[in-house]
Simulated scan of single mutants.
Amino acid sequence: MLPAGSRLTRRDEFAAVLRRGWRSGRSRLVVHMHCPADGDAPRAGLVVSKAVGGSVVRHRVSRRLRHLLAPRLGELPAGAMVVVRALPPAADATSAELGDDLDSGIRAVLRKAGGTRRG
């Protein structure tokens, strides 16, 4: 579970990350990251749409992603806001496969950001 202070909750926060941030797509998910000027603790949010599956499947994918994302928040730069968007193949993926996609997505988005700020 993500601690309350580590969650993105408002629509405008999600929109800012999706509009202004860097993106890295994988076969099962897309990682978006935005680093605004403030240096607060990293925060994350999930987007799991109905395209992934019914409510049971969506909640299973969400639980897996939250569990995988929580320990990785410490690796992100201060102030980073991350949105992980699940794609339909995430429904059939194992936790290990989701973890691999999440790790490579985070690495790629950090490499793209390369210390520069966007927006």
Rank of each mutant, 00 (worst) to 15 (best):
G53F: 11
S62W: 00
V56K: 05
A78L: 08
R107E: 14
L87S: 05
E13M: 12
L8Q: 01
A108E: 13
M81C: 14
G45K: 03
G74R: 02
R11I: 13
V48L: 05
M81A: 13
L87K: 09
G54Q: 06
R43D: 07
A86G: 04
A93T: 09
L87H: 04
R111C: 03
A70M: 08
A96C: 07
A44G: 11
R117V: 03
L76M: 11
R60F: 00
R28A: 14
D40I: 00
V56A: 15
G45Y: 07
G39I: 00
R26D: 04
V48F: 04
K50L: 10
V82Y: 00
R28C: 14
A37M: 01
V47G: 10
G74K: 01
G119M: 10
V47L: 15
D38G: 04
L69M: 15
A96F: 05
V52I: 11
L68P: 02
P89S: 05
L76T: 05
E13W: 10
D38P: 01
A113V: 03
E97F: 07
D103C: 12
A113K: 08
A96I: 10
G105P: 09
L73I: 05
R28T: 13
D38Y: 00
R19I: 00
W22Y: 15
R72F: 06
A86N: 00
P42D: 12
V31D: 14
L102P: 05
L73K: 00
L8W: 00
A78R: 08
D100W: 04
R118D: 14
F14L: 12
E75F: 01
